[in-house]
């Protein structure tokens, strides 16, 4: 069934009208909370813009797997990103990025701060799951050929976001400053030494010295909480703007 036929059928069954009114009812409710305030809406047409944004065209998938599992991987990754952003900001209220205090502050967050175990748990598990969902999202786009023109530029921003996710995970792993994170970072940065010619200086630059030390912790912290998020925001905006402009590719 083509999308046009489906639209026709839904119109016939009166389903489309129902969907539209549901959106309208939700918007009506939020107008009561003052978000879509009358005089403001008159000038900015918020209601109209919101309705246009909420009516997002989605491809017509044929199978349950495509519809429920594969189509949502990108959205899942974004929800995890938002969770990580919120829980990460909360963790920053107590975390101390020094070699002497980092582990102690993480233990305090987990054992002393009210709900700290939950906030840290959310950050830990969302971080791990995001690596998985982003990888699956990339594989799905690769295998279904959705990266092909005209969406090739969006594929590039997606690959950048995949690399950023890995860098997030790598830099965040060091921050508790426990044995496993210390040695994982030692091994992880050691691999940069195998790059021909510039390897040794690259390793020295990433570590900020001959071995993993306070400077490494400080620059990984800066990377994790400021530099990577800023770059991610840029690529996320590009990624979303392009996919809304071009639409999600129809299945093969």
């Amino acid at each position: 069934m083509s999308p046009e036929e489906r639209d026709q059928m839904e119109k016939h069954e009166g389903r489309e009208i129902e969907k539209r009114t549901m959106i309208r009812e939700i918007i009506n409710f939020f107008s009561l909370t003052g978000f879509i305030y009358g005089p403001l809406d008159e000038r900015l047409k918020i209601r109209e813009a919101l309705e246009a944004q909420l009516k997002k065209p989605v491809p017509h998938y044929r199978t349950w797997i495509e519809n429920n599992l594969l189509a949502c991987l990108g959205g899942l990754s974004f929800i995890l990103f938002l969770l990580l952003l919120a829980s990460g900001i909360l963790l920053l209220m107590y975390y101390r990025p020094t070699t002497g205090e980092a582990y102690k502050s993480v233990v305090e967050i987990t054992n002393v701060v009210p709900l700290g175990w939950l906030v840290r748990g959310i950050h830990f598990w969302a971080g791990n799951l995001m690596v998985i969902t982003v990888t699956l999202h990339l594989l799905k786009v690769l295998i279904t050929g959705a990266y092909k023109p005209p969406r090739d530029f969006n594929w590039l921003t997606g690959v950048m976001l995949f690399l950023l996710t890995l860098l997030f995970a790598f830099s965040g792993y060091l921050l508790p400053w426990n044995q496993i994170s210390y040695w994982a970072t030692t091994v992880g940065t050691e691999t940069f030494g195998t790059v021909p010619f510039v390897g040794e200086s690259l390793k020295y630059f990433i570590r900020g010295g001959p071995d993993v030390s306070q400077i490494t912790l400080t620059r990984f912290f800066a990377l994790h909480v400021v530099i990577l998020p800023l770059i991610s925001f840029l690529f996320l905006i590009l990624h979303f703007a392009m996919i809304r402009r071009q639409g999600i590719s129809e299945p093969l």
Partner: peptide, 13 residues
């Protein structure tokens, strides 16, 4: 409510 509980520093700290 959870966020406010989290950011209120516990007396031990």
């Amino acid at each position: 409510w959870g966020v406010i509980r989290f950011i209120s520093p516990p007396p031990e700290l």
